[in-house]
Design a protein around this nucleic acid. Structure first.
Lengths: 337, 337
DNA sequence: CAGATTTCCGGAAACGTTTGCGGCGCAAAC
DNA sequence: GTTTGCGCCGCAAACGTTTCCGGAAATCTG
C-alpha cells in the first residue's frame, strides 16, 4: 500500500519522531541518522500525506477557487493567473464552479470548508450575499475577484469598470455619435453596474441625453449579446453606436448585425469590454477596453497568501486601471444630423 | 475554532460513535437520539472534515486534474466538462497545471498524490513517459484526455485525430486544391501525429503528392500559428490551401496572411481543427473539424469515477468521431493549373 | 421465568502526521 | 566524584473521523 513515515522510520532504524524531524529539517538530529532517514525516504519513494499533516498542523496549503463559470475566456485567464501565483508559492488549488447560482455556490463553499482550504478566491454571484455572510461567519480568509461589493469590508482585486465604461463611451462620443446604446450585463453584478455608470458619466459629461430605450441587460454570453442586440437594433430609431459590456456579448452583436444586414462599423459602431485574446481577430476587430484578468488572478492570489502568512493586516482593495484599445469596430469620426 | 463531531456529540448528549452513525445514516440508532444529533449539528453549523474522513476511509472523493495549460479554449471546455461530471457525482477537483513541462508535471503528480486524490485526469505532456510510468507504479487510477499513447494499456477519451485531419484535407482536395500545406502541432504530441497522418492519408488516397516543404511544426498557440504560416507562405511556391492543426494556430495564419496581403479564401484557402466557439466569428469564419472537448471531459470523468466505484474493469478507450464544419475560410471549388 | 436473540449504544483503535516532554548519555565544571 | 548542561532521540498525545467489538437493555422463545 501507501508508504508512510513509519516505513521510512523502520527501514532507517529510527523512531517516527526522528524521521519526521529529519524530513522537515526541524529540531536537532545527528548527521548519521538524518542521512539514513533521507536515504530510506528516497529509496522507498516516500511522499508525505498532506491530509494527515493538515489535520495536525491546521494548515493545508490548499487555496479554494470558486468561480461562476461563464465559459468566458476571461475566467480562463483569471484561473491561469491564480494558478501561476499559487504554484510558485507551493499552494495547490481546489476548484469549484458556482455556475452563477447562489445555491450551487453555497454548496461549493461547504465542500471547500470541509476540505480545510487555507483561503478562498472567488468571483461572487451577487444575486444576494448569503455566500459572503457565510464566509464572514466562518472567518475563512477570502478574496473577491473581478466583482466586488462597494460597501463591504473585504479584500478584492478588480478592474475599474466605471473607468472602462467611461473610456469606451467617450471614445464613441468623440467619433461623433450621439445615440449610443448600451448592452449591459446582468443587473445584479458590480461589473455591469460599474460599466453602466461609466457609460452614463461619459454621456452626461458631454451633454448627450441618456435614453432608457437604448439600454438593455443581457447575460455575459454570445447568446445573451445576440438577444440584447436584437432588442436594441430592431427599433425604428436604432442607435448609431453600441457599447456591449463584454467582448463576448459584442460577438453576439456581430451575429445580430449580420442577420439584420447592418455593416460594422459603417451602419453601427461597436465596442466591447475585457479585451479577450481573440478580440483582435474577430470578423471585425473589436474596439474594447482591457481588463487584465490574468494579472487580477495573480495579484489576488498573492495578496491572499500574504495575508495567510502574516495574519491579519490592512484591507487590500486593488483597482486596476483599464486601457482603451481602439480597433476597427468603432469606425472613423463622423457627423450625424 | 472549528466545530467537530465531538461538539455535536456533546451537545446532543451522545457518544461520537452515535453521532457519526446518525450523521451518516448508518447502523441502527434510536429515533430520539438521531433527531437530537441532527438538531445539534444544524444549530452548531457542523461540517465534517473530509481530510479526517479521507484519512480513515482511504477515499477522499477528490479527483486530480493535470492539464498542460495551453491557454487554449479547448482546455477551458475540457475543464468545464470534467467539472460538470465531477460535481454531479459529488467529487471535488484538485487542479494542477504542467505548463507543457515534464518536470513540472512530475512535481504536480507528487503533490496530487500527497493529497490522496482518488483518481487522476490528465492531458499528458508526451515529451517522454516519466509521468505515466510514475502513475503506473503508484497504481493510482488515471485517465488520459485529448492525447493518448497507442501502445499503452490505459484508459483514454480522445477525438479521432486521424479522421479529423482526413476530413479537412479531403474537403480541401475536393475543392480542387493540389498544393495543400500543413501547419502541424508539436511533433511529440499524439494529436499532431494523428492529424498529420490523416492529412497524408487523404493526400495519398487522391493521388496528391506529399511535399515535405509544405509541412511545418509549431506550437499550439496563435503565435505558433503565425510563425509557422510565415515559414510556409513566404516560399515562392506557396501552397494554395493550408490546414492548420488547430483553430488557434489558424488565427495566427489569419494574421500572417493579412500581413502578406493574402486574401482568405481567395488567395489561400484555410482550415483548422477543434472548432472553438469563436471559430464562427473570426475575421474569416473558419472551416474546421469539431473536437467535442466538453464531452471528452465529461466522459473521461464519468468513466474514471465508474472505475473507482466498481474497482478494476476492462480497458476503456473511447474515440469520438470528429465532424467537418465548413465555413467561408476554405472557399469555393476551383481549378488549378 | 431462564435463556436466546435483537436493538441500540459507547469505548477504543486506526488513519499518517507533528510536536511537547522527558530521558539518556556525555562532556564540562565544580 | 557529583552536579549541570546540552545534544540527541523516543514515547505518546493530538488532529477529526469511521468502524469494529463488546456490553446493556429490551424483546422474544419455549
Amino acid at each position: 500500500m501507501r508508504v508512510t513515515i513509519h516505513d521510512v522510520a523502520r527501514t532507517a532504524g529510527v523512531s517516527v519522531a526522528t524521521a519526521s524531524r529529519a524530513l522537515n529539517h526541524k529540531g536537532e538530529i545527528g548527521p548519521d541518522k538524518r542521512a539514513r532517514v533521507l536515504a530510506a525516504a528516497q529509496t522507498l519513494g516516500y511522499a508525505p500525506s498532506s491530509m494527515a499533516r493538515a489535520l495536525v498542523s491546521g494548515r493545508s496549503r490548499i487555496l479554494g477557487v470558486l468561480i461562476n463559470n461563464n465559459a468566458s475566456p476571461v475566467y480562463a485567464e483569471l484561473l491561469r493567473g491564480i494558478e501561476d501565483a499559487a504554484n510558485a508559492a507551493g499552494f495547490t488549488l481546489l476548484f469549484s464552479n458556482s455556475a452563477d447560482s447562489q445555491e450551487q455556490a453555497l454548496h461549493c463553499l461547504a465542500t471547500l470548508q470541509s476540505m480545510h482550504v487555507d483561503g478562498l478566491l472567488l468571483t461572487p454571484v451577487q444575486t444576494d450575499r448569503r455566500d459572503i455572510e457565510l464566509l464572514q461567519r466562518s472567518s475563512l480568509p477570502f478574496m473577491l475577484l473581478l466583482r466586488h461589493f462597494p460597501d463591504l469590508e473585504a479584500d478584492y482585486v478588480i478592474v475599474d469598470n466605471v473607468a472602462g465604461g467611461y473610456l469606451v463611451t467617450s471614445h464613441l462620443l468623440e467619433l461623433g455619435h450621439r445615440r449610443i446604446g448600451h448592452l449591459a450585463g446582468p443587473a445584479h453584478t458590480s461589473t455591469a453596474q460599474g460599466r453602466l455608470t461609466g457609460y452614463r458619466q461619459a454621456l452626461a459629461e458631454r451633454g448627450a441625453p441618456f435614453d432608457q430605450g437604448l439600454l438593455t441587460h443581457a447575460d455575459y454570453t454570445i447568446a445573451g449579446g445576440y438577444e440584447g442586440a436584437r432588442r436594441l437594433l430592431e427599433r425604428s430609431d436604432r442607435p448609431t453606436a453600441l457599447f456591449a459590456a463584454t467582448d463576448l456579448q459584442a460577438v453576439g452583436v456581430l451575429k445580430a448585425a449580420r442577420e439584420l444586414g447592418l455593416r460594422i462599423p459603417e451602419d453601427l459602431a461597436l465596442a466591447g469590454g475585457d479585451d479577450i485574446e481573440l478580440a483582435e481577430f474577430l470578423e471585425v476587430p473589436l474596439t474594447t477596453f482591457r481588463q487584465p484578468a490574468r494579472e487580477i488572478g495573480m495579484r489576488g492570489a498573492e495578496i491572499l497568501m500574504a495575508r495567510l502568512r502574516v495574519g491579519s493586516q490592512a484591507l487590500q482593495q486593488v483597482v486596476l486601471k483599464p486601457k482603451l484599445i481602439v480597433r476597427r469596430s468603432s469606425g472613423c469620426r463622423r457627423t450625424f444630423s
